[in-house]
Amino acid sequence: MGVLTIDAAILEGIVAHARRDHPDEACGIVAGAEGSDVPSRLVPMENSARSMTFYHFDSMEHFRVWREMDDRDEEPVVIYHSHTATEAYPSRTDISLAQEPGAHYLLVSTADPEVTEVRSFRILDGVVTEEPVRVVNASEDAVQKYLFGQSPTTVDYECRAGN
């Protein structure tokens, strides 16, 4: 079973983007070195649909960002978007339109103004598989604001040494 390992600072950036664009859906990627499965470079994207219920990468920005990744030998390790009134679980739309088999699909729900729900999935040929989110370099405070949607036994928080 897979796991998404993500740095707390990057997750903070994703959540900040989702909160900023609320009530519209926010979307973007986290690029990482090809084959590394390590998301290291956050790229918030424009939602060209500018909608509370739909997101669509702007076609020209999509092209530029993908070419840049190509030049840097990167790939989209994480593709994220927010749901602003519903849970952080892939909708049928998300499933039917998912076309990046190698990506972790990270969903963030901003439906609750206080607590952000964060969940990660693989979506392959219409099959959704949830995976644990492992946050590294997190302070205890930061982690407490998130609801990871997994049972406690499968959530793995890793805090800095000394925390």
Binding site: E25, A85, S91, S96
Partner: peptide, 14 residues
């Protein structure tokens, strides 16, 4: 490039 799109949109429309 396959479009990157989705969202909490109604299934029939999608």
């Amino acid at each position: 490039l396959p479009a990157v799109a989705g969202g909490a949109f109604a299934f029939a429309a999608a």
